[in-house]
Design a protein around this nucleic acid. Structure first.
Lengths: 208, 208
DNA sequence: GTCTATACTACGATAGAC
DNA sequence: GTCTATCGTAGTATAGAC
């Protein structure tokens, strides 16, 4: 029942926000009574924080393979670093375009606007590991940049994938589609890979 | 009073969402009674839609100058188109980093996750004009791409600026800052301009 | 462990005084 | 136009039955 309540709560909190979500409705979706939430999580706030950790764990698990793949062997060349970054960002874009991410993202994007303790948990469990794998690759691809420039560029690269979810309603309208189909998703991922290579391949030797 | 209620409502709806926001609290911020909302807007839902139009109008006004500047003379060369795009994206990034956008963005980003009629109004008033100015410039900068590729690339470029707001909590952590200072904002805008040039300068003649 | 019953609070809508 | 008063509804929390 604990698990079912968490899954239901992801959707309710994501769609309605903390205040807007109704504990009675969350419980009803699981065929149980609202007081189960009090029992399992101590109350609405406890449920909210548990949802954050639940999402963070699923997200971390979801990206585990992609992160292990890029970390397993030392980076040899700039081109190697760039292709690893392309692979990570493509995995991230696929996640952002997928259906599972929609549920998680509704919750997370809300938290980004007005971060609470829940964001701390999501960041430390799911995002920090990705950042820590990401920045060294940027450094390897663009050693000409300062540490802060590398982090800024890394975030902006990351942002392109993030926008696929955060700005999805606008994206559909720009592409003139009701919903994103498989063809559009592939196109977006290919463009993102091209952008990534263009950004990371530039440097002092090509742009003096 | 109508104006005051709208301004207060931007913050309450943005922070708490539609269901979470309390009309009594919105009215109290303006030193008036909740029934003023009934009088001016017909109810909570009417207020919400009015807020959407209010934000859209302010956003459109905010970007009017930048859009006029890029549309006033015909585009002559690829380089000309690229520098116009750099200028628009820089203006957009400045907006996203600014304080006014924080209030608007809380409202808009919520709508993007679960679009309602309010998003239609924001998109048609504030975003469509920007898209319609943006895509032709991409076409001029990258005539080698198909229409759909141009739109996808345009959105991803746009997404970097969007992420400055939508992912701000993560951005601060990646940069190791409590809040973004002026120096960090300038750095991000410069990186975005560099990325924009790298993405748009690439093409069949440079990357065969 | 889970549910029922209940207490309490706060919400939005509305009618009517000013 | 704005406010007060009031209504019905819906929220959380808690205690106690099973």
């Amino acid at each position: 029942m604990r698990e079912a309540l968490l899954e239901s709560a992801i959707d309710h909190f994501g769609r309605c926000g903390f205040e807007g979500a109704a504990t009675r409705a969350i419980a009803a979706d699981c065929g149980t009574a609202m007081s189960s939430i009090t029992y399992h999580f101590g109350g609405k706030e406890g449920l909210y924080l548990a949802v954050a950790e639940h999402i963070a764990a699923q997200l971390a698990e979801h990206h585990r393979d992609a992160l292990e793949a890029i970390a397993v062997t030392p980076v040899k060349t700039r081109e190697d670093a760039i292709e690893r970054l392309v692979a990570v960002l493509d995995a991230l874009a696929a996640t952002m375009l997928g259906a599972k991410a929609a549920r998680w993202a509704r919750f997370i994007i809300r938290e980004q606007q007005e971060p609470t303790e829940a964001f701390d948990r999501i960041y430390s469990i799911a995002m920090r590991p990705m950042t820590e794998a990401f920045i060294p690759l940027i450094a390897a691809a663009r050693p000409d940049l300062s540490d802060r420039e590398q982090r800024a560029s890394g975030f902006l690269l990351f942002g392109q994938a993030l926008a696929l979810r955060a700005g999805r309603a606008s994206l559909c309208r720009v592409l003139g589609l009701e919903h994103l189909d498989a063809e559009a998703e592939l196109l977006l991922r290919r463009r993102l890979a091209t952008h990534t290579r263009a950004i990371l391949s530039a440097g002092p030797e090509t742009l003096p």
